[in-house]
Design a protein around this nucleic acid. Structure first.
Lengths: 201, 201
DNA sequence: CCATTTTCATACCGAGCGGTATATAGTGAG
DNA sequence: CTCACTATATACCGCTCGGTATGAAAATGG
């Protein structure tokens, strides 16, 4: 029963999705607290009242940008879990992260890492949101690795939860190094080394 | 020939080292941009003019706090490199990081990670300082691993530089997870898992 | 005691922050 | 056309930021 969109009043002159995408780029490069409303509205091509009318406030805008980030940029995580082997899962996760951090026009960093580490002053809600999302994706990874273990796809001595934490740490460390200006070659090498370390059944 | 300290004028009423140590704690928990002068002066127990007279400005204060951090908190890195085996080096590096992030009253995070990731707005000099220090310690680690390789202490297929990047990534990932509220048990498990992955000769 | 020098305490500065009040412009309904 | 309604543009709000001017307080050398 979608109510038909009776347009009343003056129609807005911008596309909320495009504006949100522009906001995501700003948050991605500056972090939540580092992104000022001036930068945001400038990149989005709208004015402050328009932003507040459409998205609520800066915090709500960030949560929506985070939704978009997960949907568009982290989709490789879901598909990676469908690889047939645990090793394949790990490799696709690593290579997906590598691609985000070296390819395209996107900032060379990880929004999750930036937000989790950088939001100290206020913005407790921001940090807890990011942590909750991370926990959710971690849970999915653990479950996938437990399946792998049940399938005999992991060595006997390996705990799925521990392996998931480890893999997450490497991926986050990759984000830190990308933030610190590591070259694509270095990041690629990091992926190769991690895969070389991966336990063999 | 140290000139004898002719005291002229009113003597200062605080100990610069204690004040700097207090400032380090603030930077460590808040990051560079997240730490306000009000928080800093409050924690240091001095006023703003005293801070500026003694330390220059916020940026100079941070650099000095970083010196103290390296000297007091990261000293385990130097000693870790003196372990007889590469495996011992890795384990001491990981356990040293673990101890910093779980023991004592210090903040559960890594100042280097916080500063490298969080300084986006201005503070390019802060970021480049942290990156330069990281590069210096990375270089020392690479050289140590090259020695290990020459001594037959590493498998033939392993590049020292790649292994150093990898180990650094795990350590930085550990810092991110500590920032995100990971439990000491999880971090301990991360160390164990990483050591289980470590290549055997 | 006095002059000099340095520190300390208070108040203040311009700038930028997130957020909003107000007035105007553009739309469909009647 | 008028009305109800909504988006836009501009100017503004209180607040905090990093940093400083000013004057009193505390020490030494003469």
């Amino acid at each position: 029963m979608a109510a038909e969109p009776v347009t009343r009043g003056r129609p807005r002159e911008f596309d909320p999705e495009e504006a949100l995408s522009a906001a995501l780029q700003v948050f991605w490069t500056r972090g939540y607290e580092g992104a000022s409303l001036a930068e945001l509205t400038d990149a989005m091509g709208i004015t402050k009242p328009s932003l507040y009318a459409c998205f609520g406030n800066k915090e709500a805008l960030f949560h929506k940008a985070l939704d978009l980030y997960e949907r568009d940029k982290l989709c490789y995580m879901r598909s990676a879990l469908q690889e047939p082997t645990a090793r394949g899962v790990a490799e696709r996760l690593l290579r997906g992260t590598l691609q985000i951090q070296t390819g395209g026009n996107d900032p060379r960093a990880c929004l999750g890492v930036i937000s989790m580490v950088a939001c100290t002053t206020q913005a407790e809600s921001i940090k807890s949101d990011v942590i909750a999302r991370r926990a959710s994706s971690d849970k999915a990874l653990v479950e996938r690795l437990e399946r792998a273990k049940a399938e005999g796809d992991l060595p006997v001595g390996i705990e799925p939860a521990a392996l998931a934490t480890y893999l997450t740490a490497v991926i986050q460390g990759m984000g830190v190094q990308a933030s610190g200006g590591a070259s694509p070659q270095q990041l690629e090498q990091l992926v190769e080394t991690t895969m070389a370390m991966w336990p063999t059944t």
